[in-house]
Amino acid sequence: MKYLLLFFLAIGLLSSCTKEVEIDIPGYEEQLVIDGRIETGMPPIVLISKSKDIYAPTDLEAFLGAFVSGATVTVSNGTTTIQLIEMCTDNLPPGSEPFVAEMLGIPEADLASVHICGYTSLDPLIFGEVGKTYSLTVVAEGKTYTAETQIVEPTAFDAVFWKPDGDLTTHGYSWATLTDPPGQFDAYKWEVKRINDDGTGNELDANFAETFSPVFDDEFFDGLTFDFFYDNPFGYDEGVLNEHAGLFPIGDTIVIKFSKMDAAVYDFMEKKYMQLGTAGNPFATPTNIPSNITGGALGVWAGYSPSFDTLACQP
């Protein structure tokens, strides 16, 4: 259905012209934004910032200035409660750099040159475990915000494979066979990175990347076994031929990170990607993304249980 909405947008845009306008958009209220996650075997990490007026400056300074320091952040798994410590990108504990780099989308080498602060703990007692529910409490500027998320049982693929697309012989999508557990709600997220050597001895991609609409639930296929594919998020870069857009070339080796999440996190993610996909589309309802955080904050406290598969793109 969202393709239908996009399609209508395309029709509208094809027959129209667009210009920038100045218009009064009343009603801005500053809100706290909590962007927290915990996944299996990893420490919790929480970034706290503030929402900005739609016409507020959008330069790097404004972006960095939006982060909130000095909050009290605690995470509990029911038996262990730990207060997270505030860490900044230019002063990270050894070993945490790759994870922080991925979370912020900043190359690991550049972390020291920016000053972004977040909250985490390197105590293994609070690292993510399958089946546990993690509660988050944030006290910032005199207000308290709480949230809960569960790291659900993961579901691994039956198989992953690559096959050429259509008449092509050298390029194709990444495919997977999935057996969805019957009789329960399941929601999934697909991410990928290429681990080929980039010519310098490093992997081609430092971080996992998502493609368009990376989350889905089992509304349509509860308990079924089926094949499906995802495109290559790096396959739209400059220099990629049009007919190869979104495809993996033969010879790529990729790691697929296939995570599961609970219903509230999925609700956030589904609406988030809907908004990203249809932002500004007059045919879509203006939708605020439902947060699982109480107390009036935006954002999400998300638990993920990933499983990983390596796929060599060969017929």
Partner: peptide, 8 residues
């Protein structure tokens, strides 16, 4: 229309 933006 959106009145504010944030990053997640």
């Amino acid at each position: 229309l959106p009145t504010s933006w944030y990053v997640q």
